[in-house]
Nucleic acid binder design. Structure first.
Length: 710
DNA sequence: GACCTGCTGCGGATTG
């Protein structure tokens, strides 16, 4: 039925393709988008035709003869824009419509052409849109004042993140230029249903006008757990041999959770394959591998019929098209269910084909976490997005961006614009004023009578190429062999002449390090260590940890475990049977050993961090081990209980404690690119909201009953 | 033992 609702050029396109029926999400989206101007969020698993679900009705409905850009497509990745460009061009081949790529690597002539004659569809990144607002605000009006649709791809990657707040703010600024003409269509494979999708609805700026279209059809997945205990830092030979046997005759993605380990896996599997004369299509794909090399790997996977094996990080998690993948291998647990869903989605993209997922674990805690994630996935659980109600740091960025874009703006006008921005609607007017006056005080803004302009210190920041993004990046050294760039790695003690490193699935010897130009000259060699990469630890949701605890006390028969993983789980269960747990929700275990105590919290990363802060304030010596969600404590049982019971009274004074911590450890705020320009009390708020979790810690401390082993 | 994302404008050289 929905077919007849579409315009003739689109119907012709579908007839020519020979499509016999629509996917459920397409049927739903076509009629809904055609019959109303509501915002829609389309949620449906990977490779279920979401792009078509959005664009078939939009291309039918929009009159591209009108002046101005009609449709704006926003993507988190350049690579995705390039993929989707081809797809949307194909979809609109029976229409007379211009499609323009607009990102940092896109053709400049095409951009200029568009400004001369704004029309059609534009594919853009949030940062390019930001740059347009800052440098060419008049273009924004010219290009988008007649905009009808904004399509946001992989919208889950924005919800609950700093980059998402930036995008929400930009959309809010766009609405102002456009008199709220346009509708939003968001696309996602994963989305938490908590609070009836409140966060994603707020993201569009209009909760009531935003409707969710969801296809919950599950995907058939064959899952198998395998356990190989790692005794050393490197992966065991048994694991590698098993991995090789499992993957050698297929098209495979391996996710080993880190760049260094991805290199290790790619190099070592290739070595095994060389010995037994197997295929040599072993690659690594992560942010440190040179972009051109990465593109070659993607091209190889998509266009070659040979088998391959790519060891990668989350660079291959989102929707970049790499064709058919038979198996997905996860080495040690994913940090989130959302990530697991995206990774599983990469295999068996062909209709009706089941996906193969192998979950390898190298230690007992990772195995337990992996089992917990899998069970939660089966339950349909997805972590709710992080709530950032008052994003003061992104607020600063946007205040500078608006001021720069206006080259002189009335202070009252700036305040009003920020106050009306949906991304900052919970920040109070007094707070807005206080932060703006602070920016004036530190010379980021300069007040000229009733106008403000960018101040002397602000100019240094605003005019940098780095201003357009809200996220931080590390400084890297370029790795070069005979004039070819292989990739980039962060500086580490390992980066010295004659040391060997792994990069782009090959082994290199460092010949020369140029600290001035940040370049490393290398030549190929035979043996090497994996490079050292640094990063902040991922945050695990409390639900994952609660499920881990549940597995310890649950006698279910997990038929997806192989013998060695089952052994390992049973050993853990036996170890924890010394605690007589009555209530999984409120009981937590205190292991009393000869010398010290070990307290198992089985709760989320942010809550653990907050507990650690409170323990430190109470002068309780402790070491937090995140993987097992436990604290090692050097106290007697009675001393600890006394301190523990006093913790909740410390929470009332948490601001002062965080303030003190921040004054001695300013790097604590290192995760926030703009937080350092805030007044102190707002820095404390940023930490409270993004790094710690005060509310849930309070609840946790209050409800917990400690259970001992003796 | 710890992922990822993007990037203007201008001047000057080079190429068609």
């Amino acid at each position: 039925m929905s077919f007849n609702l579409l315009s003739e050029p689109i119907r012709k396109f579908i007839r020519d393709k020979g499509w016999e029926q629509f996917r459920p999400i397409q049927t739903a989206a076509i009629s809904k988008i055609l019959e109303s101007s509501n915002n829609f969020i389309l949620i449906s698993r990977t490779a279920s035709g979401k792009t078509e679900a959005a664009f078939l009705p939009i291309l039918s409905k929009v009159n591209f003869r009108e002046e101005g850009i009609q449709v704006l497509y926003i993507s988190p990745l350049i690579a995705l824009i390039n993929d989707q460009f081809n797809r949307i061009e194909d979809l609109s081949k029976n229409l007379d419509v211009t499609i323009t790529k607009w990102h940092g690597e896109a053709n400049k002539t095409q951009k200029e052409k568009l400004i001369k004659q704004p029309n059609g569809i534009v594919l853009i990144t949030p940062e390019s849109l930001e740059a347009m607002f800052i440098n060419k605000p008049f273009n924004v009006k010219l290009l988008f004042s007649n905009l009808k649709y904004v399509v946001i791809d992989e919208i889950h990657s924005f919800i609950g993140t700093d980059r998402g707040i930036q995008l929400q703010s930009i959309l809010s600024r766009l609405e102002k230029e456009n008199n709220n003409l346009f509708s939003v269509v968001g696309l996602s494979a994963t989305m938490s249903e908590e609070n009836s999708f409140r966060e994603v609805k707020e993201f569009t700026g209009n909760v009531d006008k935003t409707k969710i279209l969801i296809d919950r059809t599950p995907k058939n997945i064959n899952v198998l757990f395998r356990f190989f205990k790692n005794e050393k830092e490197e992966l065991s030979l048994e694991l590698l041999k098993d991995l090789y046997k499992t993957t050698k005759d297929n098209k495979v993605l391996i996710f080993p959770n880190s760049r260094g380990r991805a290199e290790e896996v790619a190099v070592k599997l290739k070595k095994i394959s060389e010995k037994v004369k197997g295929h040599l299509n072993y690659f690594s794909h992560h942010s440190s591998v040179d972009k051109e090399v990465r593109e070659y790997v993607e091209y190889f996977a998509k266009n070659n019929r040979q088998n391959f094996c790519i060891a990668c990080t989350s660079t291959l998690e989102l929707g970049i098209d790499i064709g058919t993948v038979d198996d997905v291998i996860q080495i040690d647990a994913t940090n989130s269910i959302a990530s697991l869903i995206q990774r599983v989605g990469r295999s068996g993209r062909k209709e009706g084909k089941t996906s193969n997922l192998y979950l390898y674990a190298t230690n007992e805690w990772s195995l337990l976490q992996s089992v917990a994630c899998w069970l939660l996935y089966k339950d349909g659980f997805i972590e709710p997005p992080h709530k950032n109600v008052k994003p003061y740091d992104i607020f600063i960025h946007q205040a500078l961006s608006i001021t720069k874009g206006h080259s002189g703006i009335k202070l009252t006008n700036l305040i009003n614009q920020l106050k009306d921005n949906s991304a900052f609607k919970y920040i109070e007017i007094l707070e807005i004023e206080e932060i703006l006056y602070h920016l004036i005080k530190i010379d980021f803004l300069e007040k000229l009578q009733d106008e403000v302009i960018i101040g002397v210190e602000g100019e240094k920041v605003v005019n940098s190429r780095d201003f357009y993004s809200v996220f931080k990046t590390e400084e890297n050294f370029k790795v070069i062999n005979a004039g070819n760039t292989i990739g980039e790695i962060p500086f580490s003690p390992q980066i010295v002449e004659d040391e060997n490193i792994l990069l782009s699935a090959k082994i290199w010897k460092i010949k020369f390090v140029d600290n001035k130009t940040k370049k490393i000259e290398v030549i190929p060699t035979k043996d090497g260590k994996k490079p050292m990469f640094f990063g902040i630890s991922a945050t695990i949701h409390q639900k994952v940890r609660e499920k881990m605890m549940e597995v310890l006390y649950n006698q279910s028969n997990y038929d997806f475990l192989d013998e060695s993983s089952l052994d390992e789980i049973e050993t853990l269960q036996k170890d924890f049977s010394v605690f007589k747990i009555q209530d999984l929700r409120t009981n937590r275990m205190l292991l009393i050993a000869d010398k010290d105590l070990r307290f198992f919290t089985f709760t989320g990363t942010r809550i653990n961090r907050t507990i650690q802060l409170l323990l430190n304030v109470s002068n309780v010596k402790n070491i937090l081990e995140e993987s097992s969600s436990s604290f090692d404590i050097e106290l007697s049982k009675d001393e600890f209980i006394l301190k523990w019971n006093a913790l909740s009274s410390l929470i009332s004074n948490i601001d002062a404690h965080i303030y003190n911590l921040l004054s001695t450890h300013s790097s604590l705020l290192g995760f926030s690119k703009w937080g350092k320009y805030l007044p102190n009390k707002y820095q404390v708020e940023i930490l409270k909201n993004n790094y710690f979790d005060i509310e849930n810690t309070k609840e946790f401390i209050t409800k917990i009953n400690i259970v001992y082993n003796k």
